[in-house]
Simulated assay, not measured.
Amino acid sequence: MRLKGKVALITGAGSGIGRACAQLFAREGACVAIAEINADTGESVRQQVESEGGQAIFIRTDVSSPESVESAVARTVEAFGALDILYNNVGGSTLQDGPVTTTPFEEFRRKIDIDLFGTWLGCRYAVPEMIKRGGGSIINASSITALRGTRNRAAYTSAKGAVTALTRSMAMDLAEHQIRVNAVAPGSTLTERIVQRRQGGNARPEVAQRHILGLLDPVDVAYAVLYFASDESRKTTGQILAVDSGFTMT
Score class of each variant (00 low, 15 high):
residue 127 V to I: 14
residue 104 P to L: 02
residue 63 V to L: 01
residue 31 C to R: 06
residue 250 T to L: 09
residue 29 G to F: 01
residue 99 P to L: 04
residue 170 M to R: 05
residue 55 Q to E: 14
residue 96 Q to L: 15
residue 122 G to K: 00
residue 171 A to Q: 05
residue 80 F to V: 07
residue 204 R to W: 06
residue 189 T to V: 09
residue 128 P to T: 00
residue 28 E to H: 13
residue 108 F to T: 10
residue 166 L to A: 06
residue 143 S to M: 06
residue 103 T to R: 05
residue 168 R to C: 13
residue 127 V to M: 02
residue 65 S to M: 10
residue 117 F to L: 08
residue 58 F to H: 10
residue 38 N to Y: 05
residue 178 Q to L: 13
residue 141 A to C: 15
residue 151 R to S: 06
residue 226 L to A: 07
residue 56 A to Y: 04
residue 79 A to T: 10
residue 172 M to N: 09
residue 220 D to H: 10
residue 24 L to K: 11
residue 241 L to R: 03
residue 199 Q to V: 07
residue 164 T to R: 11
residue 125 Y to I: 12
residue 174 L to I: 05
residue 160 K to W: 05
residue 24 L to M: 11
residue 64 S to T: 15
residue 216 L to S: 09
residue 246 G to K: 02
residue 59 I to C: 13
residue 90 V to G: 04
residue 159 A to K: 03
residue 92 G to C: 11
residue 65 S to Y: 00
residue 33 A to W: 08
residue 149 G to P: 15
residue 145 T to E: 12
residue 66 P to T: 09
residue 138 I to M: 05
residue 148 R to F: 12
residue 142 S to A: 15
residue 121 L to V: 12
residue 234 R to P: 08
residue 210 R to N: 13
residue 189 T to G: 03
residue 228 F to K: 00
residue 32 V to K: 02
residue 107 E to Y: 08
residue 11 T to F: 01
residue 51 S to W: 02
residue 142 S to F: 00
residue 175 A to Q: 07
residue 141 A to G: 13
residue 194 I to Y: 04
residue 248 T to E: 05
residue 70 E to Q: 14
residue 225 V to H: 01
residue 170 M to N: 03
residue 176 E to K: 14
residue 100 V to Q: 02
residue 112 I to H: 03
residue 113 D to G: 10
residue 90 V to N: 01
residue 190 L to T: 05
residue 233 S to R: 00
residue 125 Y to S: 04
residue 53 G to M: 10
residue 248 T to S: 14
